[in-house]
């Protein structure tokens, strides 16, 4: 999936770049390809990479941005989270295609900025993992809601927030914001909502 964007270098904050982009239009456009990679280390301490290639650069080196990320409560990728206390395993290894990107997702548990990926049968060959997202803990409007001293579902309080029911979680507001920006501006897709994006996620150990 190639997107066409204006290149401004990395010394300008992303928000400023986005503003200038809207003014600059397509002048001097360059092409990028981008995709996510999730490198499984531990449930609360892994890395989510955004890889992209700028096809206008000599030799097209692979650029990598990464954020600390968590996934699941166990390292058994076939564990499905349930209210029974069954703990969700981290995201199954393999490749995925994006099903959509949302700025203001409004699910019962996931809200705000969220990337939705295709379902996956895990490595036992018989367990279907579904509803797989990259997300954070924030409100639908991308703000923090922290009314209690405990673990509020739409508030990034502590390291424990990296633990998830099986999705990939990154910290709010900064890291989900930069992941969002890179996705839209370096080879992801400019669209929002549910769509077939063609952008990939690769999960490996």
């Amino acid at each position: 999936m190639k997107s066409v964007q204006r290149r401004w270098g990395w010394l300008v904050p992303p928000t400023a770049i986005a503003l200038v982009l809207s003014i600059a239009g397509q002048a001097g456009a360059v092409q990028y390809d981008g995709w996510f990679v999730f490198d499984r280390n531990t449930n609360a301490n892994s890395r989510l990479y955004w890889n992209y290639v700028d096809w206008d650069e000599p030799y097209q080196p692979l650029h990598q941005i990464y954020w600390k990320a968590g996934s699941g409560q166990t390292t058994n990728e076939c564990n499905k989270w349930r209210r029974t206390g069954d703990k969700g395993g981290w995201l199954p290894a393999g490749s995925y295609v994006l099903k959509g990107m949302f700025d203001n997702y409004d699910g019962s548990l996931i809200k705000g900025r969220a990337f939705w990926f295709e379902d996956k049968v895990c490595n036992d060959g018989v367990t279907l993992r579904s509803e797989l997202f990259i997300h954070t803990e924030e409100t639908r409007s991308q703000t923090q809601s922290c009314p209690t001293s405990g673990d509020d579902p739409w508030c990034w309080e502590a390291t424990w927030d990296f633990i998830s029911n099986g999705c990939i979680k990154v910290e709010a507001p900064h890291n989900i914001g930069t992941a969002h920006w890179y996705y839209h501006n370096t080879g992801g897709d400019s669209r929002h909502g549910e769509y077939y994006g063609g952008v990939g996620l690769v999960v490996h150990d």
Binding site: N43, A44, Y66, K68, W160, E171, N175
Partner: peptide
């Protein structure tokens, strides 16, 4: 724009 150092822990499982 990279993340903070990977120091923590609370490995859950």
């Amino acid at each position: 724009l990279t993340s903070p150092p990977l120091t923590d822990p609370g490995q859950a499982a």
